Simulated scan of single mutants.
Amino acid sequence: MSVDRLSSSTIDAEVKRKQQASSRPQRRHHRSKYRIPLLDTERPFASQGHIVYDPPGNGNCQFAALCHLLAKIGIFRSFRTLREQVVSYLVEHPYTPDGFPLELYTGEEWDTYISGMLDDGTYGDHITLQAVSDMFNINIIVHSSLGIDATVTIVPTHSVAIDTLNLGHFAEEEGEHYVALQLHETQDVQQLHEDQLPVVTEATDAKTRSCKQQ
């Protein structure tokens, strides 16, 4: 390759890298405007349980809330380590069980999505939730502040779950934020959700972006 061609390709690559790098903060800033302080954080989930951990709203809330709940079942990770492991898992598993590229659900090129998700402060989404479910063989029930009809159960793709974690998710107009939940002791998780809630895997609704402000 000639020096001219090498220089040209290097410049093009650098321009593309800078454009991608600048687009991620723009997405985060755009979403941050929806961060609305909540005066009564317990209220939306009062019928299901109570909040046991409310992570900082810095874009890492999904990973931080998951780490808190994973520790309860003997799996200890920092939110940074969990993020890195999830990204590594997605690099190795870029397709849904049906063979569709996960890129179809991201709205951007897969490499751009992966590099962005590795950054501290990038919001987790449904794809990262499915990855955690598959990595640790756990069900993840996401209780929405919009009510029971908006609650979703995520199940492992290729195995039987060994446990169930419960997250609370504040909808976009209520802060778009994840918290860790403890259900009321009298509630049977399976009974509460089995016939009422949609079961979601990678192949469905992977667009649901999570706590984009952790």
Rank of each mutant, 00 (worst) to 15 (best):
166 N>E: 08
132 V>M: 13
117 M>A: 08
128 T>H: 03
103 E>Y: 02
202 E>D: 12
31 R>K: 02
28 R>M: 15
89 Y>Q: 03
167 L>A: 00
135 M>D: 05
209 R>C: 08
54 D>Q: 10
157 T>D: 07
15 V>F: 04
83 R>K: 13
20 Q>V: 14
37 P>K: 10
30 H>Q: 06
147 G>T: 01
149 D>H: 02
197 L>H: 10
20 Q>N: 09
128 T>G: 02
43 R>M: 07
124 G>Y: 03
20 Q>D: 12
162 I>R: 10
80 R>P: 00
157 T>C: 06
37 P>V: 14
127 I>F: 14
211 C>I: 00
44 P>K: 00
69 L>S: 10
132 V>Y: 03
34 Y>I: 03
78 S>H: 05
159 S>Q: 09
82 L>M: 09
49 G>A: 07
60 N>K: 01
35 R>C: 01
108 E>R: 05
206 A>P: 09
188 D>C: 11
12 D>G: 04
72 K>S: 12
174 E>T: 05
172 E>W: 07
125 D>E: 13
6 L>S: 12
69 L>A: 09
170 F>T: 02
41 T>C: 09
19 Q>N: 13
136 F>A: 01
173 E>I: 00
80 R>I: 05
22 S>N: 11
151 T>I: 01
131 A>G: 06
56 P>S: 14
34 Y>C: 08
146 L>S: 10
154 I>V: 14
12 D>N: 03
27 R>F: 05
111 D>N: 07
131 A>W: 13
97 P>S: 15
50 H>F: 14
123 Y>K: 06
24 R>H: 07
85 Q>Y: 01
150 A>T: 07
155 V>G: 06
134 D>S: 12
123 Y>H: 11
166 N>L: 10
164 T>E: 11
56 P>V: 10
151 T>N: 02
136 F>V: 07
83 R>E: 12
76 F>H: 14
171 A>P: 00
11 I>E: 08
24 R>C: 08
144 S>L: 05
204 T>D: 14
110 W>Q: 00
171 A>I: 04
45 F>I: 00
138 I>E: 08
99 G>M: 10
8 S>V: 03
150 A>S: 12
129 L>F: 12
102 L>F: 11
75 I>D: 03
36 I>S: 04
192 L>P: 02
95 Y>W: 09
22 S>L: 14
51 I>V: 11
200 V>S: 09
56 P>T: 06
165 L>T: 07
146 L>A: 13
181 L>P: 06
99 G>K: 05
51 I>N: 04
8 S>Q: 14
158 H>K: 06
132 V>P: 04
27 R>Y: 09
137 N>A: 15
199 V>M: 14
61 C>R: 00
37 P>W: 15
202 E>M: 06
155 V>I: 15
184 H>V: 04
146 L>M: 11
47 S>R: 15
22 S>W: 05
123 Y>S: 13
180 A>D: 05
191 Q>R: 13
102 L>Q: 06
135 M>H: 11
135 M>E: 08
109 E>P: 02
188 D>V: 08
122 T>S: 09
197 L>K: 07
113 Y>G: 04
